[in-house]
Design a protein around this nucleic acid. Structure first.
Length: 727
DNA sequence: GAAGTGATGTTTTTT
DNA sequence: ACATCACTTC
């Protein structure tokens, strides 16, 4: 039976088979963590634990899906019955079941960040506060932090420390906004991301019966990426597993060195607390220290960098892998040139090392950096995919249709109403909408009912009646037809589709395409085998699922693309070749995080995560100058580069271009003084004359002596030359 | 109420 | 650079 136990090293074996009692697995990068987690679950099932008694929590849908697939390979179909998913999706599922116990319906809406911000803006306005001193971002992050630290509005309003902090930021009324925000969400039948954790926690505290039910249900609990959990998440986990006479079968896996969400309330204290909290239950700590992923140069560089951090669990990451190639350090004059160099290098690596696009990733600190790389990858006709940033589900055209659907099932959904009542334009203006919302808020009725109750001129009244009548048809139909049918009906009859079709600009066509692919994806959802019953195919269930989607979750297996993503998004992934770009002071580390050692340590951990994604090739780039807010800035190279021992670095190889053969030491010399005069950024616009992007490398074992091989040198000699043109 | 203009903030990271 | 938002004008 135990074939899956073979080939595990002693630490991994212990982590898989120590199924009883609390376990902490400290897992370094590339130490086979996912393997351990999946085998552990497989092992439990082999031992006779029912799959539905296992709760496995991860951070991303992608990780959850991957784990399920891997477990399925070992234990088969049963894997589908495991309660495995992200904190939000699993907790959302429980909240839907228990909804009426917290005065919600199981159809509750999930507000995304845009909805939350929009609501905050409305509230700031209603409270007659100055909108410039209360930016939605800042307010939301205060509210989010409060929730993550289990501080409800009433406590917030009485907390002198928080109030003092707000006062010193010249935002003394945040407590008031917080209070209003919470009551408005509740009234709208909506939860934001934090509520999905907070409300479950509150329910468990308040309702012992419910808590007991889930304590008994989940006999084995596993948590991945534990270093990124916040107080709330740990609180819920503890409620579920730590109680009188509980078996405490909980296993958390994490790496303090990879904690990168402190800004969001995650705290590595959770790992330390966990060891303390479960000490009297016989906690076992297992360290996975052997790295199977990366070459020696990369592992060593990572160790050297992270050593600069002060507070960390003691561990010693090592590898048996070979030395590998040195880490390549590339300096460019402009951010634009950085884009070109990286694209050039990608071409080179594809050819020289026979890499496919999927094995290559470009990692950056901020999503806005993706643009230049996209530009050059497009020039070279290299297929790429940008993760995060303006994700598919955040696009206006997508959100518009979803808002209609939300309003169809939840008449209280204020944010959805605001979005659709006058889009496409039907002559219902802001004043009218404001009247409706304030009426509904004052009288404590659903916004939907406010539409017909509000006092407006007859002309407006007619328009409102027209809107309500249209929506009523949708509502009635939604009860009998599936999500896809409703969506297509709404698309046509609301005028959304016509509005998009009327726009013949390039962007307009793109929007129409997005809109259609949303419809396609709803169709896919309805036709999916896992969604069987009619009930599951309805709009309400679709919306619950889609609200927690991010575009990293749309697996496009058939295409071979180079990935572009933020370092945060790369957590848990690995690639043969990794480019970490924009390694400059004030960018990475971010200027927002340079005020304290703690913040800098987090940036360093982020850098650690970035470089440990690489299996074989690691390229670091930085640029002397870069546009920020439309202004040209000069930054020094990131301190993190200098934290890597020079013996692992290679800045002297420039096979694509003859210029800039600088040594590392030189790179840290007088950078600024080397820039003189008024340099205009140069933009390369020419396309290579031979398209080698679709070049399919032959397996290297097929290459024999005497064969004629296609090399970059040949390609270049054929006369591909860059023409330079001023911007 | 719509459309156009100018000012202002925004860019850290995500479920 | 870009988007959003407040303000003006029609």
């Amino acid at each position: 039976m135990s074939h899956y136990l073979e080939g595990l090293n002693p630490a991994q074996y212990a982590a898989v088979t120590q199924t009883e009692g609390p376990v902490l697995v400290v897992a370094g990068p590339g130490s086979g963590k996912t393997r351990v987690l999946t085998y552990r679950i497989a092992h439990l099932i082999e031992k006779g634990v029912a799959p539905w008694e296992i709760l496995s929590l991860t951070f991303t849908n992608k990780a959850a899906k991957e784990m399920k697939e891997r477990i399925e390979k070992v234990v088969g179909e049963k894997a589908n019955q495991i309660w495995a998913g992200t904190f939000h999706s699993v907790f959302g599922k429980i909240l839907r079941i228990e909804a009426e116990k917290i005065n919600y319906t199981s159809d509750f809406t999930i507000y995304d960040t845009d909805d939350s911000k929009s609501l905050i803006n409305s509230i700031v306005k209603e409270l007659n506060l100055d909108s410039t001193s209360y930016p939605a971002n800042a307010v939301l992050s205060r509210i989010s932090n409060a929730k993550s630290n289990i501080i409800p509005p009433a406590k917030y309003a009485n907390n002198p420390v928080l109030l003092q902090e707000d006062a010193s930021q010249k935002r003394p009324h945040i407590y008031k906004i917080y209070e209003t925000y919470v009551s408005r969400c509740r009234k709208a039948g909506a939860m934001d991301f934090d509520d999905m954790l907070y409300l479950l926690y509150a329910l468990f505290i308040k309702n012992e019966e419910v808590l007991t039910k889930y304590r008994n249900k989940f006999k084995y609990v596993l948590v991945d990426e534990f270093q990124d959990t916040n107080q709330l998440q740990y609180g819920i986990i503890k409620l579920l597993t730590y109680y009188d006479k509980s078996p405490c079968n909980i296993c958390v896996v994490g790496d303090d060195a990879q904690s990168i969400y402190a800004f969001r309330g995650a705290t590595i204290d959770n790992i330390l607390d966990y060891e303390k909290d479960f000490k009297n239950r016989g906690i076992k700590t297992i360290k996975l220290e052997q790295n199977y992923r990366s070459t020696h140069h990369i592992v060593q560089a990572a160790n050297e960098v992270i050593a600069y951090n002060s507070r960390q669990l003691k561990k010693d990451i090592w590898t048996e892998n070979n030395e590998g190639t040195k880490i390549r350090l590339i300096r460019t004059m402009t951010d634009n040139e950085e884009g070109k160099r990286v694209a050039d290098l990608i071409l080179e690596q594809k050819n020289r090392f026979h890499l496919i696009n999927r094995e290559i990733v470009i990692l950056y600190r901020t999503n806005s950096q993706s643009r230049v790389f996209e530009e050059y990858l497009r020039h070279y006709n290299i297929t790429y995919r940008v993760f995060g940033g303006m994700s598919f589900y955040h696009r206006k055209e997508v959100k518009d249709l979803l808002a209609y659907l939300r309003l169809v099932i939840n008449p209280n959904d204020e944010e959805a109403l605001k979005r659709v009542i006058n889009y496409p334009k039907r002559g219902i203006g802001d004043t009218t909408v404001e009247k409706i919302i304030s009426l509904a808020t004052a009288e404590q009725i659903p916004v939907w009912n406010g539409i017909l109750k509000v006092e407006v001129p007859p002309r407006t009244k007619n328009l409102l009646v027209g809107f309500v009548e249209m929506m009523e048809v949708f509502k009635q139909k939604a009860k009998v037809i599936n999500a896809y049918e409703v969506a297509t009906m709404v698309a046509r009859q609301s005028g959304l589709l016509n509005e998009l079709k009327a726009d013949t600009t390039i962007e307009g066509q793109g929007r129409l395409e997005n809109f259609n692919s949303l419809l396609d994806s709803i169709k896919e959802y309805v036709e999916n085998d896992l969604v069987e019953t009619d009930d599951e195919k309805n709009i309400s269930n679709y919306l619950q699922t889609v609200s927690l989607y991010t575009d990293a979750d749309d697996e496009k297996n058939d295409t071979d693309y180079v990935s572009l993503m933020s370092v945060h998004a790369a957590k848990g992934l690995e690639f043969k070749s990794v480019f970490v770009v924009g390694l400059e002071e004030k960018l990475f580390p971010s200027f927002m995080s340079m005020n304290s050692t703690q913040e800098l340590d987090e940036e360093r951990r982020l850098f650690y995560v970035a470089i440990t994604r690489a299996k074989q090739l690691l390229t670091l780039t930085y640029s002397n100058s870069r546009y920020k807010f439309g202004q040209l800035n000069y930054n020094d190279p990131s301190r993190f580069i200098s934290e890597i021992n020079e013996s692992h670095l290679d800045s002297n190889v420039n096979s694509m271009k003859g210029n800039g053969t600088e040594l590392v030491s030189e790179a840290f010399g007088s950078l600024k003084s080397s820039i003189k005069g008024n340099f205009k950024p140069i933009r390369q616009v020419s396309l290579p004359k031979i398209d080698i992007s679709n070049f399919v490398p032959s397996p290297s074992e097929n290459i024999a002596a005497g064969m004629k091989v296609f090399t970059l040198e040949i390609w270049r000699r054929k006369g591909v030359r860059d023409r330079r043109r001023k911007r």
